[in-house]
């Protein structure tokens, strides 16, 4: 589109009724806003089984979307939705959500489990899950303040083998008991 044409269209008022022909390709905002119906405005989730996308690392989101699309990561609607997007779309939405502010939540957690989980996180997970799980780096997702039911559903998927753990994670998780893992999730849910 040339500026000349746009200027003419504006001047004659033709722009509004030829908007379809004139429109620019979808922006990162345009693509990402649509996700908020399930993941909350700017990726801050209020739904207990839905993860917050706000402040996740770009790599983590692109990685998740590609795995949803290929079926490597199990899902309900995400695999079906991912098929409607290109790699460039994934890149755009990942950039958008990585720039959003961390979304703290307030939820009921067990204080004893949180305390136990904190020690376990420090000893086992802190090398990848930085800042008590608040910081997403590379393909490591933001764990802090995710809703407990969401974290528990994902841990169940890992334990059943339906979702594949990264090797480094599998090594660390293997020696931990069911109670240990539960405590860890309570800890992550409590971090604001």
């Amino acid at each position: 589109m040339t500026m000349k044409w746009k200027g003419w269209a504006l001047a004659t008022g033709a722009l509004a009724f030829s908007a379809t022909a004139m429109a620019a390709p979808p922006s990162a905002e345009m693509i990402s806003f649509a996700c908020a119906g399930c993941h909350g405005t700017n990726g801050g989730s209020a739904g207990l089984t839905m993860p917050s996308l706000a402040s996740q690392s770009k790599t983590a989101i692109v990685d998740a979307m590609k795995k949803f699309k290929s079926g490597e990561r199990p899902s309900t609607v995400m695999g079906r939705l991912a098929k409607g997007y290109t790699d460039a779309d994934f890149d755009a939405m990942a950039t958008f959500f990585s720039k959003q502010k961390f979304h703290p939540t307030t939820q009921a957690v067990n204080a004893a489990k949180v305390k136990k989980g904190e020690a376990l996180q420090e000893a086992n997970c802190s090398r990848c899950h930085l800042e008590d799980g608040k910081e997403g780096k590379d393909d490591t997702p933001v764990m802090a303040s995710q809703w407990l039911p969401y974290l528990q559903m994902q841990m169940d998927l890992y334990q059943s083998g339906a979702r594949k753990m990264p090797e480094k994670m599998a090594e660390k998780v293997k020696p931990l008991s069911k109670e240990d893992l539960d405590a860890l999730l309570h800890f992550y849910a409590s971090v604001k």
Partner: peptide, 25 residues
């Protein structure tokens, strides 16, 4: 609503409109 809001703002600001991308679940 989001597509409409973006393009209403673009039109009011004299900017180019942006193509639709949306979801139904």
């Amino acid at each position: 609503a989001k597509v409409c809001a973006m393009n209403v703002v673009n039109l009011l600001n004299g900017k180019e409109t942006i193509e639709f991308s949306g979801i139904n679940v």
